[in-house]
Design a protein around this nucleic acid. Sequence first.
DNA 1: CGTCTGACTGCCC
DNA 2: TGGGCAGCCAGAC
Length: 340
Amino acid sequence: MHVGIDVSATRGYDVAAIDAERRLALLARARDLDALAVIARGLPPEAVVAIDAPPGPSKGLVPGGKRFRVAEEEIHRLGVSLYPVPPSEDDAQPWMREGFATFELFAKTGFPLFLEGPARRSVSIEVYPHLSYLALAGTRRGAASKIEWSRSALRGTVRGLPKDATQDQLDAACAALTAWYFGQDRWVSYGDPREGVIVAPRTGPDLGDTGREADQLALAIDAAGPTPAPAARSAPAPARETPFSDRVLRMVGLIPPGRVATYGDVARWCGNPSAGRAVGTLVGRHAFEVPCHRVVDAGGRPSPAYPGGPEAQARRLEAEGVPFAGARVDLAACRWRGPA
DNA sequence: CGTCTGACTGCCC
DNA sequence: TGGGCAGCCAGAC
């Protein structure tokens, strides 16, 4: 039995399970950790549980004093973006903390976190559906919508998936499929065992024993096409395969703790210097998914619309060491310069 | 398709 | 400084 779990801070847990023939055996929603515990206790002991979330904070192992995890660094280098996990649990986004608790629950239920060594059963593994989709689809998302891309990546590999499956359900199924690949010993991992590794399917041609296995996925991703170009500074914006909203959320996720950006900054990095206003509405709609407290207006003012008020945003920033001048962030001192 | 709505910005008192 | 105002833009009907 291979189980996949999609973690969300607000929508609860989506759980999928597939059998050895990759047939969907379970598709359920658990409202909270208690409900998930009931499912966990019912699993066969030899199951593999794949969870779409980090198991714990960063330990600062990336050279150069970077604060996110080695796994993020390595995967980011592949041209695949993901949310950085901060060193402190307090700085972690709500869904990340749900992830920490989820791994803890499964560890207590008989599925300790897999960190290194040969693939084995009765463990939980960390997965990242976007990376798995990429490995499975063998192509970048392109113009397809996210859900279409996800669906096509799973088509023909997971049997019995409902036609009207939600994105969360697809992600759970994708996690379960990644667990299956792990069970087949067709997998690669990224990151440092000391702070957590992300497991992805190995679908490419077997290159033999030479070379690092992770490089095979890197090759496959390379073959999948170029990384979406970062926003041009002045040239007219070329057609981009990533919708604006995805770019914005990704970008906000990259702002390091202790630094801030303005709405206009984010808009500029996303290729549309005058879309600051739209950036605001977007981060507002995804306030619990990205570290939106690190975005302030051009004057360094926290947002009046921040959940809990601008004071709450200021407190979070101060907790990260962001310097203030009165009620405003000292932009000169801590404004992030943007993605590399 | 238009139309409306914001966690925006720069500019002018 | 601070408030008012007119553009501006991506999403949601």
